[in-house]
């Protein structure tokens, strides 16, 4: 019998994995596809001095915003942090460090980290302050900037369905950063809406193979919507 990856609560799933000052990579875009229950469990663990690699920082009272409010995050690696007043206040006051990383560069840094690639070259950010102090290289007559892969101590992801081997399937645009985040952590914990029996997931449709996932927990998601935009029915 293989190692049992299934845990029955988020607190249980994080047991023994958290320590102050660690680097945590977190999936999601805005509030879409964030591991919302694992984030709450991370807050409740009392961990401090975190560096968090995540495209966004949640909103004031949800997602990673919860850990900002309690000052458990020391440093963020993000591409966009609007929509979060507390974030802005802490950053302006110099209480929070931010490493702004272009969105595509962030996705690639996470992907590279998970694939054992320590660095790569990109055109993105060339001649901007993002490129300052980074090595440049000319390929085929064009200049590129070197960016480093991100290897996290812990990865937290959210998927739609998963099985006890850790195979994951995401739903619609809730996929976003989750597949790369899942690969870049020394340990990856996934929360899923539905834990299904082995064989239920079509192997052709698995987005994240179970090798990347160490622990899995079934949760109920609130799935908060940031901008509810509708058109009137015709």
């Amino acid at each position: 019998m293989a190692v049992n990856k299934v845990h029955h609560s988020c607190a249980d799933a994080l047991q023994g994995l958290v320590r102050d000052g660690m680097l945590v990579a977190v999936g999601g875009f805005g509030l879409c596809g964030i591991p919302e229950n694992l984030i709450i469990a991370l807050r409740d663990s009392g961990i401090k001095g975190l560096t968090v690699a995540s495209n966004n920082a949640g909103v004031d009272d949800w997602g990673l915003g919860l850990l900002l409010k309690t000052r458990q995050i020391r440093r963020m690696i993000s591409s966009y942090v609007g929509e979060n007043a507390e974030f802005e206040r802490q950053f302006m006051a110099g209480e929070l460090e931010v490493e702004f990383t272009p969105q595509g560069t962030l996705a690639e840094r996470l992907r590279a980290g998970g694939a054992g690639i320590p660095a790569f070259y990109t055109r993105t950010g060339l001649a901007t302050q993002i490129a300052q102090g980074k090595p440049h290289e000319v390929f085929d007559g064009e200049t590129f900037v070197m960016e480093r892969g991100i290897r996290a101590d812990l990865s937290l992801v959210k998927a739609w369905r998963g099985d006890c081997f850790g195979n994951l399937v995401y739903r619609k645009t809730a996929r976003n950063f989750n597949p790369m985040v899942a690969t870049c952590g020394k340990v990856c914990v996934a929360e899923v809406e539905e834990l299904v029996p082995i064989g239920e997931l079509d192997p052709d449709q698995v987005h994240t193979p179970g090798i990347f996932v160490d622990r899995i927990v079934q949760t109920t998601s609130v799935k908060r919507i940031e901008q509810r935009t509708v058109t009137s029915a015709r």
Partner: peptide
């Protein structure tokens, strides 16, 4: 659908033939 948003975090739909993929 909370799982179907655009880059402005607005709820949207897909046209026939749309596809989903990772940020990478």
């Amino acid at each position: 659908d909370a799982d179907l948003i655009n880059a402005g975090k607005q709820t949207v739909t897909g046209v026939p033939g749309h596809s989903f993929f990772s940020s990478a």
